[in-house]
Design a protein around this nucleic acid. Structure first.
Lengths: 251, 251
DNA sequence: ATTGACATTGACGTGACGTCAATGTTTAGC
DNA sequence: GCTAAACATTGACGTCACGTCAATGTCAAT
């Protein structure tokens, strides 16, 4: 039995364009080509097409399919590799979903989010991946060569310290510490040290963190609910601001 | 402040090619273009770039981003739509993963899988979309003009009935019904009626479903673990086969 | 002979750039 | 003033799996 290209399309649902494409890339050669150039497919060709379509449905690329069918590659191994790829894609989508979802929440939270604000969220350390994502953007302002230069380990340490600071601030606020106390001021110093690692935070010329920047930051912690969350809510953030203001006054 | 394209790349991490591309598609026009053709970006342009990069990380297409930034589209609504798209992608991957996984299992199960076998899975109704996919292939053997001719509604009904049958069979098996009981036999009749809608199932000449085909089908339900799953496992499938055998004997 | 259905081979379009290639501009050093 | 390095530009092709014309040839039926 030999089918014309039209009959194959009716029977398989694939378009003639697809069949010609498969011919072009050498994935499925017609069993016979007439003197007029017409393509004809016999049973063997149809079986091969069947297998192609199956693997295609499973998501394999045409090149992969070709390798499998030409016995250049083990079928199970190819599918296993594909499974890994699917898993990676799944995870990526999962993270992206979370990021989009949080962004929507933030946008609905009320105030118009200006890009500036979104990129300043460098201590949103509740979720590491989110921070990494934010840093990919944050890097814009600070120059991401720095962030990249940290290496995986450096980034890890940086984020860990950020998380530790957030926890320490919350604990201090909960404890109702005096903003001028040694403990609170030591915490402020630690925060400043951490900040100093970020390019762009240091004042012009001086090697130290810019005080104006610090005060702005403190204000932001209070004003922006998304920041406040990381510092024990509004009251916590207010306390953090007091501690920082005190520290600035003393330096 | 005005940055050259090179400075922008250092500061943002995007390549100059990307910036030129964004210029080409009108997504981000440089604030100034020198007489020499050089591109320069001011603060406003950088803020716009910031927002572009953020939305890009969230997975929006450039065209979408442009629509959002040009205030043609609400940001939240755009992100919501994108969320839907992500969810759809997630589900698609989930199904694909399951299909690939099952295929691997089947391949490892021993016997070489002939294309024929794989395409006979027309009542894998656990997931509708999967069935649709399988049908796209199954159609190969039966001639998919029929499947297409059903229309969306017809396909929907067909798949719903398939799912209902699968559930009914499982329930019957769980209940331990007598294969010869009226209830079980009614179920068999219903299954046969459903099958009769499929071209190729009817015996030559007679309008009724071919009995040999039915018996083969029943055997397959038991033999193939991928089928058995849909009929309450191996024991369930065995019971289904008994019911069908009884029905065939009585007709 | 004409019509209509079906076939062919190009060739462009899709999305978001990467990657040459060929060439002009600016800056720094000698 | 010359030269080399660094940086800029505009094309233009490649990616992936085809969809979609366009221009044209072939075949069966009327």
């Amino acid at each position: 039995m030999e089918l014309s290209i039209h009959e194959v399309t009716k029977v398989t649902g694939v378009t003639s364009r697809t069949l010609r494409h498969y011919d072009d890339v050498g994935l499925l050669t017609p069993s016979r080509t007439g003197a007029n150039g017409y393509r004809f497919y016999d049973d063997d060709a149809l079986v091969r097409l069947q297998r192609i379509l199956l693997l295609r449905e499973l998501g394999l690329a045409l090149e992969e399919i070709r390798a499998v069918l030409d016995r250049e590659k083990d079928e199970v191994r190819a599918l296993r590799a594909h499974l890994d790829w699917i898993d990676a894609e799944r995870e990526r989508l999962e993270r992206q979903r979370a990021a989009v979802s949080r962004t929507i929440t933030a946008l609905e939270g009320g105030d118009e989010i200006v890009a500036k604000d979104m990129f300043d969220g460098f201590d949103h350390t509740q979720y590491k991946d989110e921070v990494v994502e934010r840093w990919g953007a944050e890097a814009y302002q600070k120059g991401d060569s720095w962030w990249r230069s940290l290496g995986d380990e450096g980034r890890e340490r940086f984020l860990d310290e950020a998380a530790a600071l957030s926890a320490a601030w919350t604990a201090g606020a909960d404890a109702g510490l005096d903003p001028a106390s040694d403990e609170a001021q030591a915490l402020a110093q630690r925060h400043v040290d951490w900040l100093s690692g970020i390019p762009g935070t240091r004042g012009h010329g001086s090697g130290a963190v810019d005080k104006g920047y610090l005060l702005n930051l403190a204000d932001m912690y209070v004003a922006d609910p998304r920041f406040a969350e990381n510092y024990g809510g509004e009251t916590g953030a207010t306390w953090v601001r007091e501690v920082i203001r005190t520290w600035v006054a003393q330096h």
